[in-house]
């Protein structure tokens, strides 16, 4: 019985939550350093694409995972350049990178595979079985420990909460923000990679389908703290699972539950919790501000 619950519900929830958790942890680090990260969606998409491409050509998922991470990093550094150096509004620039990222996979897949936004299927022996799951757990533990106990965590928190205090203590605020952005790129890139080479076996068009925004919502519902953020991700992962499991199931009446109602559940939960359960959101004070 317990085993059945584990293999039917707990493990699948952990699996579908994996991309979310990676991305949300990245988003948490970035926003804690004082930079809004609504570009998670685009980073995940590009990460998923490059992971699939590299895994397909090397037949080794670890290379793919690395590629997804690097692709995410590159995109996030571009974002860092525009918001930290060129002083673009963070929400505007994040939206721009999301649009940009939507164009990249179809553009490249046309050149490489003559397809408008999908990659060839990767044989199952070149896919991950459970490694990303362990990697995810490790990221959660490391993030939590570093957030609370390390010098890095302390300084990142101050970069987002009171940058002037950090500056006057002799630490570069911009430096911490670059690091926060880079972390978000790498982690969200990893998250994207797990979409295409862990949960699926190829990249398909617009594969991230809003997960970057869900991850961002998880960060906010988790009050920018690592463990609560992960819990929020698991909740969202569970509704995603529910959505798959309830497809075509008749719960009451004669017709099956429309899948749309379950689809909108995580978004509805986010709004309701944000508006009615959390009180005024206590975001990092300097979030989104310009120096």
């Amino acid at each position: 019985m317990l085993e059945a619950v584990f293999s039917n519900w707990i493990l699948p929830t952990l699996r579908v939550s994996t991309p979310l958790i990676f991305a949300a942890l990245g988003g948490m680090w970035c926003e804690r350093s004082g930079v809004v990260q609504i570009g998670l969606e685009g980073i995940m998409l590009v990460g998923a694409f490059f992971a699939a491409v590299v895994t397909h050509s090397t037949q080794n998922p670890w290379w793919g995972l690395g590629a997804g991470m690097v692709a995410g990093l590159v995109l996030s550094l571009g974002y860092g350049l525009t918001v930290l150096k060129l002083k673009a509004n963070q929400i505007v620039a994040g939206t721009a990178f999301n649009l940009f990222a939507m164009g990249v996979p179809p553009f490249l897949s046309m050149i490489w595979y003559d397809s408008t936004g999908s990659t060839p299927v990767i044989p199952s022996e070149a896919l991950f079985r459970s490694a990303p799951l362990f990697l995810m757990v490790a990221s959660v533990v490391l993030s939590a420990v570093f957030y609370h106990r390390s010098k890095f965590g302390l300084r990142v928190r101050f970069a987002g909460e009171h940058p002037k205090a950090l500056e006057s203590a002799g630490i570069s605020v911009q430096g911490k923000r670059w690091q926060g952005i880079a972390l978000s790129g790498m982690l969200a890139g990893l998250g994207g990679a797990t979409l295409s080479i862990y949960l699926a076996s190829s990249f398909s068009r617009n594969m991230s389908s809003g997960r970057g925004f869900i991850a961002l919502a998880a960060v906010i519902l988790g009050k920018w703290l690592p463990i609560p953020t992960v819990v929020a991700c698991l909740l969202f992962g569970f509704t995603e699972l529910l959505q798959i499991r309830l497809q075509g199931v008749v719960l009451w009446g004669e017709r099956p539950v429309p899948v749309q109602w379950i689809q909108i559940l995580p978004y509805l939960i986010t709004i309701v919790v944000l508006a009615f359960a959390m009180g005024r959101t206590r975001a990092p004070k300097a979030l989104g501000g310009v120096e």
Binding site: R149, S150, K151, F152, L154, R155, R157, F158, E161, H162, K164, A165, L166, S168, A169, G170, I171, R282, K285
Partner: peptide, 24 residues
């Protein structure tokens, strides 16, 4: 004041001069 409200007194004081290498 150059103090972050939600952070503890200790963390506010030692910021930038933490005694540890990796940890605080």
């Amino acid at each position: 004041f150059m103090l972050a409200g939600p952070e503890t007194v200790l963390d506010n004081i030692i910021l930038g001069h933490e005694p540890g290498r990796v940890f605080v």
